[in-house]
Structure formats: structure tokens, C-alpha cells
Deep mutational scan, measured.
Amino acid sequence: MPVRRGHVAPQNTFLDTIIRKFEGQSRKFIIANARVENCAVIYCNDGFCELCGYSRAEVMQRPCTCDFLHGPRTQRRAAAQIAQALLGAEERKVEIAFYRKDGSCFLCLVDVVPVKNEDGAVIMFILNFEVVMEKDMVGSPAHDTNHRGPPTSWLAPGRAKTFRLKLPALLALTARESSVRSGGAGGAGAPGAVVVDVDLTPAAPSSESLALDEVTAMDNHVAGLGPAEERRALVGPGSPPRSAPGQLPSPRAHSLNPDASGSSCSLARTRSRESCASVRRASSADDIEAMRAGVLPPPPRHASTGAMHPLRSGLLNSTSDSDLVRYRTISKIPQITLNFVDLKGDPFLASPTSDREIIAPKIKERTHNVTEKVTQVLSLGADVLPEYKLQAPRIHRWTILHYSPFKAVWDWLILLLVIYTAVFTPYSAAFLLKETEEGPPATECGYACQPLAVVDLIVDIMFIVDILINFRTTYVNANEEVVSHPGRIAVHYFKGWFLIDMVAAIPFDLLI
């Protein structure tokens, strides 16, 4: 008679799926529990143990900040960024110097990925580790590398530091407007667009060049630039800015003055950032001319202004700041037409079709709590990747769950009947059967004279019903998954307890 339990259901295979997918890609990662103190490590794979030199037993239950890997060259700011990422709910990448158990130093890129439950609360953290440099290539500990984003994938490793954006290309926007319009339909740009040429040739750093990471940081200074100062900065030398009595002219307006920039070969870094931020506020060169004239017309309804409409929906549905990093990277690809469009465009503009998908598509409701890094690593669709929660398995109709209350009560009843059979069957065979043979035949009273025979008949009927119930009862397979398919249940029961239950259900007393 089957006594099969499996009270692990309803099970959740999400954690096993993450481990299996990460292991298949030869990654070095740990999984931490966000619900406990210090976000203790609950799993670390073999790749991480080989990377740091510690065994799994030495890593388990330690804080996922990996303070046991810190050393003299470990930056405090990087460690603080990892700790801050564990307090938030967004994906974050941090470069930090770690030390192995043998004392060797290596520069590592740590990717902190939160995993949320159905309520939107962070319950786990996945920390992925990628070695960037070994100890002989690690720089000085005073050099802070965590304020910069990861290198873009479309640049060669040897040319990542030679990417320079020439400031004269930004200063000569109005001069290039006529050349853009003359391109017409034969050019790649839309009317009114501004073409910015980027020099990728390796050259020595000069005062006129600005690194790509500095251009990325310009967006942080746009908020500090007032509207009046932006307007004066875009007017140009024809209309000098008016300053109040006793007030000095704005240095932001002076930063885009061609006369002032041409007199000296070098520009201050602050002026460069502010000038680029001011130019980015204009949607095209037409807006710059309109600002000089004193009238700013409404933005025209053409394809170039609607190019950012799908980007707005993608940004609203993005799951991490990696989408913004990807957008900034692609927006700086050289030799393309940049349409400086305000994100607050007309909502009635139709979304044009684009061959290049900048932001990841909208994630469906079932995966809105899973970050983009987890979705990318697992390579699963929205119909396959579940949320991290207890999910009731989908069972067929008329199927009994093996952990249901009805099955528990039924098993206790069958257990009592088995005990009765084990006690009274030998007793009936030894004593009652002998008395029946010696006594007179009682054929007239039937079952009324033999109450134990009636009980034995009921017990046999219950055993037959138990066999039928076992054909529709779920079970737990070797992978700790609840199986509810009727065919698989029948095959599993035939290979197991079916023969024993059938022999126990045969009414031998009635056959004798």
C-alpha cells in the first residue's frame, strides 16, 4: 500500500533555474538572501570558489559584500557603492579590487542584480563577478574607477581610450546646418538635424578633445543650467548677453562664444560640459537660429522629431539603469545623424518603425519583477520565466494532490484497515475457520451469522477504491517536481505499489 509523501509542494524551481543557467555559462556568482541580516550568502558556485580561493563552506553565510576579499588596494568608495546597491532595488555595476585567499590582487567587475517577489519586494541578490585585470595590471588604489561605466561593446579594446569628441564640431553647429540641408533625401539625416562627426583615429590627448566618459557625465550638469543662461549661451556672438549692473557675465554663455574659444586653444572642462549641455537642449539648428531671432517656433511634425517616441515608452518600462547606459552608448555611435529632440514631445505622434532597438522591449506582467540581467542570462521568455513566489501546480481535472487534506485522511483510514487485516486475518484463519468446520452448517442466516465476513468484505472494497484513487494521485519525481499527468501517474504506480495493492485487495476469504 503506498505511503508516498512529498510535502515540499507547491515547489518553486526558480532558484534552481537560475543556478542551472548560470552554471551553463561558466559564470562566477553568488546568491544572497536579502531578508536576513547583512544579506548572507546562501549559494556560491564553483567558479566563484576558484576565483577567490575560498571553499564553499568558508563563503556560505558570510555577508555578500565580500568584505573578506578586501585588501589594501580595495577602494572604500567601491565598497560603499556595493553596500548601497544592496540597500536599493536597481541593478548596478561596480569595479573593485579584490584579494584572493593567497593574497593576489585582481580588479573585478561586480554586477549586483536584485530579484523581487510578486509584491515588488527584493528577496534575493545575485552578484556576478568578472575579472577585468590581474594584480600586475591593477593601478594605484588612489585612482577611482567606479565613477565610470563599463566599456562599450562596439569599441575595440585597444581603442576604448582613444575615443574623442571634438569640441569644434559642437561649436560649428550653425555652420554645418547648410551642408545638412543640402544633403536632402540623399543624406542619412532628416531636415533640421545636426550631424556630429566623431574622430576615432588614435591621437595624443589634446586640450581640444573630450573623453567619452566626460560626455556621459554632461547629463548630470544640465539641471544646474538655468533657462535664461541656456538661451544666452545659444544666442551666440551676435547678441551678447546682458548683465545687470554690478553683475558679471555668465561664464556659461561665454563658453560657447566662437570668438572667445578661437582665441585660446584650450577650454576648461567645466565650460566644455556646460556648452555641450546647452546645445543638447535645442532640438535642431533651426531652433538655434530661432533663439537668435527671439522667436522659438513649435517643433515640426516630421520623422526626426518622432524618433524618440518609442524611446520614451522603453525608458518607462525599463527595469534597470543598464538600459540608460545602453541608450547613452548607442546615442554616441560615430558617423550617424543625431536628432536633438526633447523627450517631452507630442504624445499624438505616431511611433516610426526603427531597425535598431535601443531599449529592451516591454516586459510582460509575469516578468515585471525580474531584472534585465536575470532575463538576459536565463534566456527565457515571458511565458517560461515565473515570478519568485509559491505557485500552485497546474493539475488535470479529477486529480488528487498527494499533500491535500483528503489524501491525508484517506491514508490514515487505509492504515487502520491494514492494521485490522494484519490482526484479524490470522485470527480468523486459526480459530474461526476451525469452529466453522466443526459446527453445523448455517446457510440460512447468511452474513448475519458471520459479522467478521462483512467487515472483511468492506475492507476489500476499500482497498479496491484505494487502488483507483492512487491512479489519480500526484507524486514527486526525482527532481522534486509534482507530477499531475494521468499517464505518468499510471506508469509510476504500475512500477511501484500496484502489484502489492492488488494482492492485498483480493478477497481470499470469499474465494475459499
Score class of each variant (00 low, 15 high):
I31L: 08
I123L: 13
R328V: 05
A175Q: 15
V122I: 08
V370G: 04
S318D: 11
H368E: 08
A175I: 01
F163L: 06
L349E: 11
N220S: 05
R76Q: 15
D197S: 01
D287T: 09
P298K: 09
V215P: 06
F163M: 15
V325E: 10
P251S: 13
L267E: 06
Q247P: 15
D111N: 13
V194W: 01
E357F: 13
I82W: 01
R280P: 09
V279Y: 13
S331L: 01
S275H: 09
T13G: 13
Q247K: 06
L225F: 04
E365Q: 13
L338T: 15
E365F: 09
A382N: 06
S318C: 12
A40C: 11
E214S: 06
A121H: 10
G306Q: 07
L107K: 13
P72W: 01
P10A: 10
K21C: 13
K362R: 13
R159P: 06
E230S: 12
A217H: 13
L267A: 08
A172I: 01
G192I: 01
A89W: 13
Q84C: 07
L338W: 05
A156I: 11
D355S: 10
R164H: 08
E95N: 08
N146Q: 15
S275T: 06
E274I: 05
N220A: 12
A160Q: 14
P310V: 11
F106P: 01
M60W: 01
T371I: 13
S322I: 08
K28Y: 06
A78T: 04
D323F: 03
T145N: 15
V122C: 09
V94Q: 06
M133A: 13
V279M: 09
S278I: 14
A277W: 11
E91L: 13
L248P: 08
F125P: 01
G238S: 08
V341M: 07
S239N: 14
L173A: 15
A80L: 12
C276K: 07
Q75S: 14
H254F: 15
K161F: 04
A223Y: 03
R76T: 08
H7P: 14
V94M: 01
N146M: 10
Y54N: 01
L200G: 15
Y327W: 09
A277F: 12
V112Q: 01
M291I: 04
S104M: 06
P141L: 15
T329Q: 15
S331I: 01
A360V: 15
E134P: 10
V374R: 01
L315N: 15
L171G: 14
P334M: 01
S209P: 05
I359C: 07
I19V: 08
A217G: 13
T74N: 01
A57H: 09
P10H: 10
G120I: 03
A228K: 11
V3Q: 15
P386V: 01
R181P: 13
R92W: 03
D259M: 04
A303K: 12
A350H: 13
T65L: 05
K161V: 01
R159A: 14
A175F: 01
A80F: 09
A260K: 07
V110M: 03
T174G: 15
N45D: 01
S278Y: 09
Y327D: 07
I123C: 10
D144A: 12
D287Q: 12
A293F: 15
E230T: 07
P245E: 14
G238I: 11
G262Q: 13
